[in-house]
């Protein structure tokens, strides 16, 4: 019993170390402006002030950036659930030519750093035919630059999501498919009616993972966003970091705000997420 107490204390110690930095930032974001830059510093705010939140939400474009990030993230989550998950399923359960080679190619793609591909993709995005004022040859307009779809583009099908889905589905019993097929179900029916309903852990994991991938993107969002209308939250954060600006207060508030959707999403999906994530590693 004594050792159980020791173990519990160990877990709590781990949790404290993990959370302390966040707690500190959270507390600092409620400090009045005069205390953020006070010297010597106060660790705890003498009074809680909402001024930085009020400022960030009313005097800046943060709410707009927030909305933009949310729209992009929802597009990305939808794309991955509807396109990438079925692809991963096929890699796990359906026989087709060059399956393993194609899968290896998908994995290899994860190893090229995106700093190298971001400009080529940018050029492609601008010259997509018939979009954003472009003609059939892709000239004349701006393609998908400065649109939410453009911001979502590189994340709508993520290689890692295909990888995770393949791992998950290859652990589910294949007899399910065979049985349903004998009963006359089409491949589509097998997937949607048999496998999807028992894949909630996977879907939860992918929802969180792809949401985070879209939410955290910086480099692509920086160059594809045009003006305030399509500036995302991560790019907006660097606005507060500019030289000579005294905007640490709103930066702290915005940092906290930027973390909230992920925390909510995570708490809602926690149980299923943890189960889903664990499957990725077994094979």
């Amino acid at each position: 019993m004594k050792s159980r107490a020791l173990i519990n204390m160990g877990v709590i110690a781990f949790a404290l170390v993990t959370l302390a930095p966040f707690a500190w930032i959270l507390l600092s974001s409620f400090k009045p402006q005069s205390e953020i830059f006070a010297w010597p510093p106060h660790f705890l705010p003498t009074r809680l002030s909402l001024e930085h939140y009020v400022y960030a939400l009313t005097s800046t474009h943060i709410p707009l950036y927030f909305l933009n990030s949310l729209i992009v993230a929802i597009m990305v989550v939808a794309g991955n659930l509807l396109i990438a998950v079925p692809t991963g399923y096929a890699f796990a359960r359906l026989p087709f030519q060059y399956r393993d080679q194609l899968f290896l190619a998908v994995l290899a793609g994860m190893m090229v750093p995106n700093q190298a591909t971001v400009i080529p993709l940018f050029i492609i995005t601008k010259h997509l035919p018939l979009l954003g004022g472009n003609d059939l040859s892709g000239a004349g307009g701006n393609g998908l630059l400065g649109t939410h779809l453009g911001l979502a583009l590189p994340h709508i099908v993520l290689a890692f999501v295909i990888f995770l889905s393949r791992q998950f589905f290859s652990e589910l019993p294949g007899e399910l498919r065979d049985a349903a097929r004998i009963d006359g179900a089409t491949e589509g029916q097998v997937f949607w009616r048999v496998y999807v309903p028992i894949s909630l852990p996977l879907l939860a994991t992918i929802t969180i993972f792809s949401f985070v991938a879209a939410w955290d993107d910086f480099l692509w969002a920086l160059i594809v966003g045009v003006g305030e209308e399509t500036r995302t939250l991560q790019v907006g954060l660097s606005v507060f970091l500019t030289q000579g600006s005294a905007n640490w207060g709103p930066l702290l508030a915005a940092t906290v705000l930027a973390t909230i959707p992920i925390v909510i999403l995570f708490i809602v999906n926690q149980r299923a997420f943890i189960a889903g994530l664990a499957t990725g590693s077994d094979k």
């Binding site: 090229v112 190298a116 591909t117 993709l121």
Partner: peptide, 29 residues
């Protein structure tokens, strides 16, 4: 009886998408 084409609705959208958002930029790079 395995219908060969039945697999393509699963694989093609994802792979085609990767071809133009990942493979093409990678080859260009």
């Amino acid at each position: 009886i395995q219908k060969r084409w039945a697999v393509w609705p699963f694989v093609l959208p994802g792979l085609l998408y990767l071809v133009f958002t990942h493979l093409a930029p990678t080859l260009y790079a």
